[in-house]
Design a protein around this nucleic acid. Structure first.
Lengths: 213, 213
DNA sequence: GCTTGATTACCTACTAGTAGGTAGGTTCAC
DNA sequence: GTGAACCTACCTACTAGTAGGTAATCAAGC
């Protein structure tokens, strides 16, 4: 089984006159060029995992379904990660720090679950509804987790802020996303911490230590 | 004219039995579905401006060149806008407010220059270098403008912050980008102001008025 | 233990349509 | 008459998706 593969294809689709003027249209060739909803194809996946295109269609009939499952899985993965983080690391401040650490890892590796969802968020208005709704859910989850961390932090007297925890969580989340975007756009990973660190510092600042903003 | 084309192809491709079960593959049909580097095509532009695909190639031989020119133009447009804003509106605080107002307009209209560049920033690692470098330039310009506004504001005693203006500018820029992303992802335009307003308020806060952050 | 029959996973071969891009011709202003 | 702007007609490669087949697995039913 799984013998012939494409190499030994007999009479199928002899292209017009294409003898190896490769052309390199700038797509598909080489890695690191793809991403986002329009940036991948069944063929890409087929190449990557070594299973034929049609077989992928067997499992995920349409691209929208495929993307929805991917985002679903990423969301669940992220949720599990955040949950276990909450359980293993007791201090809210450290949880937040670990969260940021994860994001820092995303700066260079674009295929982390968080970043995939963030990138799709940028394409929101052109996503199939099934995908968009899942990206929305991912953002809600993230905001929810951050809110709970902030609440726990204030209850323990570790954090202090004069907004609603929900609002502060939104601010934090946006800060991280914006910082990622800037770090990538400017090609400078340091930018991430320049932007994000002060936010965290401020949360802890007014906590008796009178740390200057 | 415009006779033959594919319709009159002689021996080619008669399909199984697929008569007009439209299927709607989810692409190309309907507006508002496209964006980003992989999200538009020469054909799209051709349809939009009523000039044939080949003619667009005459002006912009490759897609990378086309995108580079678009980003260039958007960058220049943004720069002109920011410059005239600096000239027409004297107060730094109002300039900042106008800047945010512009972004608010982007929440619903995805084809504003700022947002196009922000979206491309999300795709940074898969952009042709000629495009990526221009997106980088756009971000640098934006940061530069914000820095100058912040400097002017502090010199006039209107703003106060204990970081470098460059850093504060980066924070502000990231805040706006992140806020846009959240507003779009969550489908809630209000989120934008929830995130961004406090930042602006804080800049002015310590300015004698002791406005609670 | 065998044979069924359904289910599953995967395959080859194909489809219509679209992608970016090119060849070569026409039209028109300078 | 030169050159830019624009065109038709075409190209190859790739897109999502389909048709239909093969091999393996597994639960009956005998």
């Amino acid at each position: 089984m799984r013998a012939g593969l494409t190499a030994s294809r007999p009479g199928g689709r002899q292209q017009h006159g294409t003898n190896d003027l490769g052309k390199d249209t700038g797509k598909g060739s080489g890695p690191g060029r793809r991403g986002g909803y329009n940036g991948f194809s069944y063929a890409d996946i087929s190449d990557a995992i070594g299973i034929r295109k049609a077989s992928i269609h067997h499992h995920f009939p349409t691209k929208a379904e495929l993307a929805a499952v991917v985002v679903d899985r990423y969301t669940q993965q992220a949720q599990r990660g955040l949950k276990s983080l909450s359980q293993q690391v007791p201090a809210p401040a450290e949880q937040l720090q670990a969260y940021l650490g994860y994001w820092q890892g995303c700066i260079l590796d674009a295929f982390q679950s968080f970043w995939v969802c963030a990138m799709l968020a940028g394409e929101m208005q052109m996503l199939p509804e099934d995908v968009a709704s899942r990206v929305r859910a991912h953002f809600r989850n993230l905001a929810g987790w951050l809110t709970s961390i902030l609440k726990a932090g204030t209850e323990q007297g570790k954090f202090q802020f004069n907004k609603l925890p929900e609002e502060e969580a939104q601010i934090l989340m946006a800060s991280v996303h914006g910082a990622m975007l800037s770090a990538r756009a400017l090609g400078d990973p340091n930018i991430f911490l320049v932007i994000v660190s002060p936010r965290i510092a401020r949360l802890r600042a007014q906590n008796g230590q009178a740390r200057p903003e």
